[in-house]
């Protein structure tokens, strides 16, 4: 399954990125082949969402090279970027549903914008997508009437509305109960295989993702610190991977953001 001999759909070479002076990513190498589902894991705030934004072209790398479908994302103009994005789907970390549209219209939005379809066909398509995430019954609701997990599933249906070749999921499992979690996990896998697409998902759910993905990257301190197939990850002796997979508080992954020693800050001196 892994590296199934297919061409690389996403290819990052020595990618660096900084917000102002703060370097978030310092030299990322990452490859995703067609047909693969790849998970990106890492501590909160380590730059996973930033990584997806770089691949989607919403941020520009300060150094290095981001290629999607053979095109250098950093060198595209708006028109070319939009042409590429029509074949990408992105599930935002907080859903980002359009609050002035119903669930149905949210999922129909990309179809209405990009595909000239007769209304009846559009309706069938949208309802099918909603059925896939288990929310066909809620098509008339407004986003404010949804729970967090439901909103995320609608956003997922919207992300896959155009049957993209590359789908990025930013924490698809957050806020889901164990049953929906399993269903959504299977959906991501099945969809990827049916479309012959590639999927990248950012997730903290080690157990679920190891059961569906082909490859895992661990990010820490702006670098890829470990990678491998699920079997390799489970068998890994690496401290970092071990700590993550077994959810241990002590190890190489720091829980705290970098700061002055607590004594100084509490005394009021260290705080800048």
């Amino acid at each position: 399954m892994a590296n199934s001999g297919q061409e690389a759909l996403v290819d990052l070479r020595q990618v660096r990125f900084a917000y102002g002076d703060r370097e978030i990513l310092s030299g990322i190498d990452l490859t995703v082949h067609r047909g693969q589902v790849v998970a990106i894991m890492g501590g909160s705030g380590c730059g996973k969402t930033t990584l997806l934004r770089l691949i989607g072209g919403q941020l520009k790398a300060s150094a290095g090279n981001v290629q999607v479908a053979g095109q250098d994302i950093g060198a595209l103009n708006t028109g070319q970027l939009y042409a590429l994005r029509r074949r990408m789907g992105m599930l935002f970390q907080f859903g980002a549903l359009f609050t002035d549209m119903s669930v149905f219209d949210n999922v129909a939005f990309p179809l209405r914008e990009h595909a000239r379809l007769p209304e009846s066909m559009l309706r069938d398509l949208v309802l099918m997508k909603l059925q896939a995430v288990g929310l066909r019954g809620g098509h008339a609701l407004m986003p404010t009437e949804l729970s967090g997990g439901m909103a995320r599933r609608v956003a997922l249906a919207r992300a896959i509305a155009l049957d993209p070749m590359l789908i990025m999921y930013d924490e698809p499992f957050a806020g889901l109960d164990p049953i929906s979690l399993g269903v959504i996990g299977q959906l991501i896998r099945r969809l990827n295989d049916a479309l012959g697409a590639a999927s990248i998902m950012v997730t903290h759910d080690v157990a679920e993702s190891l059961s569906i993905v082909d490859y895992v990257y661990f990010v820490s301190d702006g670098r890829i610190v470990a990678k491998g197939t699920p079997e390799e990850i489970r068998a890994s002796k690496d401290d970092f991977v071990h700590q993550f997979v077994h959810a241990e508080p002590d190890g190489p992954v720091p829980f705290h953001m970098k700061a002055a020693p607590i004594g100084e800050m509490l005394m009021g001196e260290g705080a800048r």
Binding site: G56, Q58, L81, Y82, A83, R85, R86, M88, M90, F92, F94, A96, L97, F98, T99, F109, P110, E113, H114
Partner: peptide, 11 residues
């Protein structure tokens, strides 16, 4: 609420 970014991402 990132709706503008989401729209931009949908081309």
């Amino acid at each position: 609420t990132e709706q503008l970014k989401a729209m931009d991402m949908m081309a």
